[in-house]
Amino acid sequence: MNLKFKKPSKETQFAMSKVAAGEDNQDYFTLAEDKLASTTGHSYAKLVSSGNSAILCAMNSIDGAILIPDQGGWNGFKQMAKFLNKDLITVRTNHGLIDLDNLNESIISSSEDGIIDLNDENNKSALFLTSFAAYTAEQDIKAICDFAHKNNMLVVEDASGAIGDYEKRLANGNNSDVIIGSTGSPKIVNVEDGGFITTNDKTLFEKSNLLLKTNKASNITACGICNELDFAEKNLKKTIDACSYLKEKIEDETNFEVFHNDKRGINVIIKTEDPKSLSYRLRQEFVLDSHGMITKCPNYNRLKEKAVALEIKNLDISCLDYENLDSISNIIKRYD
């Protein structure tokens, strides 16, 4: 079994190296931002230096409270809300998946406490969530956005793991008000640093104009994003297909329970009573260029359960053939 950590495509590496060496002096910002806007279906896009910079700039533009899932999100949501001194509301989920009844409870309770004003168009609150809960389960973004909009709320979708969705259900500007993401390693658009924000509401950029300038990405990163977006759909589909195959195989051939085994995702999370031991053993088995592909839970960014996450998203898509996937499954079976 030969596993490799995900890297930018050779075409992207070559293009970025030419910019870094001064052999290509083209301004790639407009090209990359136009391509990002076209990919998400939003009218406006901005490049920033990292995914957390994207969260910071987006959250700074929100006047009301910030709602986040109780697990399966991203630590940066909590960190940036605290830094910006925002009211933070945690929504109970179904192992990371937003449940509309629980979301409604949070909205009503916060409205009664005066934290959320459902009638103030100039003081809208926003739900921040990731396209894939814990990277393992697709959120029903359209239903969530429809519900949020009826309650005078915005939705900010972190699409780091879903940009270029071939089903057009995720990272779709027809649903989410703001789409943010990281293009660091090992994301779907993988240039090893950088991030982005897209929206139809230009005033959101105006509110965070200084932050956007301060956190601007380099032209090398812009070149990388512009090129790597061409491979996003293929990277995402290959990774989702590999995870679906593994989820089914592990469920059928072992006694492990796979969380959200029927959902699209880019990692596989298995339940275990001894995550410390299992994660240690699997780290010895799966070694890829000094990088890892095992996450021990409980973990806010994954699930607050006794579990281990197989980060298939970390693997180069050239590794995601049936032979390697079967080998991964057989190793999991060994520790059943």
Rank of each mutant, 00 (worst) to 15 (best):
G161Q: 13
K271Y: 10
E273K: 15
P298Q: 03
T214F: 14
V287W: 04
F83G: 01
S110I: 07
A171N: 10
T254F: 11
A137T: 05
S9P: 02
L88K: 11
S49E: 13
N85Y: 13
S318V: 03
D262V: 00
R302N: 12
A58S: 15
N235T: 14
A232P: 04
A81C: 01
K187C: 13
V155S: 09
L211C: 06
N102P: 04
L170P: 01
A242K: 07
V19D: 02
S277V: 12
S318P: 00
I266Q: 04
K234H: 13
S160T: 14
A65N: 03
F256D: 04
S185V: 12
P186L: 04
T130N: 08
K313Q: 14
L320D: 01
L325H: 04
E311T: 01
Y135Q: 12
D336S: 14
D165L: 09
T39G: 00
Y300P: 00
E323T: 13
I108D: 08
K78I: 15
D230G: 12
S111T: 15
S110P: 02
E11Q: 14
I141W: 03
N25K: 11
N190A: 11
Y335Q: 06
K207L: 08
S61L: 04
F5A: 13
K78L: 14
A21V: 00
F77S: 12
L278V: 05
S61Q: 03
R334F: 13
Y166V: 15
Y322D: 15
I163R: 02
I312H: 07
S38H: 13
A134S: 14
E157D: 10
E192A: 15
D336W: 07
S131Y: 00
D140R: 02
K150L: 13
K276L: 14
E11C: 01
I55N: 01
M16C: 09
I266G: 01
I98S: 04
Q139M: 09
S318D: 12
I294R: 10
K4W: 02
E248T: 12
K271L: 01
E285F: 01
T254W: 09
G22C: 08
P298W: 09
D321T: 02
D316A: 11
L154W: 07
S43M: 11
D336E: 06
S125G: 11
S244V: 14
G161P: 00
K78V: 15
K296F: 00
I312M: 04
I89S: 01
C319Y: 04
G184I: 09
L31V: 14
N299L: 12
N104R: 06
K124D: 06
F5K: 05
V258F: 08
G265L: 05
L97C: 08
N190P: 03
L36P: 07
I269H: 03
E253N: 13
A307G: 05
G41E: 06
I312N: 06
